[in-house]
Nucleic acid binder design. Structure first.
Lengths: 217, 217
DNA sequence: TTGACAACATACCCGGTAGTATGTTCATGA
DNA sequence: TCATGAACATACTACCGGGTATGTTGTCAA
């Protein structure tokens, strides 16, 4: 049952372990990593610390587990479009739309991934945790590379126009990720509504990248 | 010496108080609010807690002080362009450029403001701190309203084109703010280099908003 | 000269939190 | 049926960090 993505092996998916990851993601998103106590996560599970420490050796490892879980899911979402034939700009449209949709649909996981990257940029705590975070950030970088290569190709093909690619990739991702900070799903909200938001964001970024004409997603 | 901005009164600027605010901003940016201890801030000052608690009644108030200080400075920066005559799109160009420049020049303060808004969205701690944060977030919202009205007018004047303004404002700000997460000033870096980065970001957003032609800032 | 206060430093308290050590229960295979 | 280990719960420790209470030093006005 072990799935392998980009050389990173996922442990066999334990039911109870997944529940812990989900509860941890909720807590980390609600209060941030350091403001979240392991007891908080346990309370949300209706359990105690014992259960959590049975699966994760430390709080940092719990966080890393959520980080990895979130990255695995988002990688899975864009997987169908990674080797898409045809113009790169068409591939980018698909990638960007799916990515933005996932930011909203898996908002909690996405924000934990975000905080993980932030923690890494700051310089984390102990060398061990540092190494684990390094690996995960590399994982995350290989994800953004998919987009980087896509827009680079699209520029070569004359469909996009921008100057520095590093600046552009950062700005693009910030815009595409933006809903993780302000989107809140309403009760009984239709998928179409979410897709409409995603279309507007992707459209914004599409024009920002120098895309011509309309987006028609 | 008390300056008043939008009805919010700034306390007389004490020298030592400013030093504390700056050191606190550095620490909050480096590790985040809850991971930063008051002793950390004191250490950075080469002092002890006593000095900090002499000026600020609590850690939350210290954070709020940095928040307000940062907002005051950024408000001051865009002040010259608030009542700018002529087409709104020209006003927006100035506003956006100055804003993005300040994001890089005052990166530490900008990130504390960012975290303050994040904390508010999550729902902060005690009712008192909640009230103080509420006021500061209103302060911050009045800032984003400047931009909101600017792009609304520019759309009316036919220079911008977008659908939902709430989504657009959020996406726009995320893109303009993006350098606070990845920009690092190199030693001996010229102002021109920073301006070049700002131009690229503003250009990206300008096109995203449906701006026509080149930006020529 | 002195006393009063600002501007800190020192020493301490105590609640919360990561982590551990030790039960307890239940399923499962021999 | 019994023993063994997984899957937790309970109880505890050690420490850190926010906040306070209490010095100490310099300055300045009367």
């Amino acid at each position: 049952m072990a799935s392998t993505t980009l050389g990173i092996t996922e442990l066999p998916a334990d039911e109870s372990r997944i529940d812990i990851l989900q509860a941890a993601a909720d807590c980390f998103m609600a209060r941030g990593y350091s403001a979240t106590s392991v007891d908080d996560v346990a309370r949300r599970l209706g359990a105690t610390k014992g259960r959590i420490y049975h699966y994760f050796p430390s709080k940092a490892d719990l966080f890393a587990g959520v980080f990895r879980y979130g990255m695995d899911r988002i990688f899975l979402a864009v997987e169908p479009y990674r080797q898409m034939p045809g113009p790169a700009v068409e591939q980018w449209k698909k990638l960007a739309f799916v990515h933005t949709m996932r930011m909203m649909k898996s908002k909690t996981l996405a924000r934990v991934v975000w905080e993980g990257v932030e923690m890494h940029l700051r310089g984390a705590t102990t060398p061990e945790q540092r190494l684990e975070l390094d690996g995960l950030v590399n994982y995350r970088n290989s994800y953004s590379d998919i987009f980087r290569e896509s827009i680079a190709r699209a520029r070569d093909e004359g469909d996009f126009r921008f100057d520095d690619i590093a600046i552009t990739v950062q700005t693009m991702f910030m815009a595409l990720n933006s809903p993780i900070f302000w989107y809140v799903q309403r009760p009984g909200e239709t998928d179409e509504h979410v897709e409409n938001i995603a279309r507007q964001i992707v459209g914004f970024v599409y024009r920002g990248l120098g895309g011509k004409g309309e987006l028609n997603l």
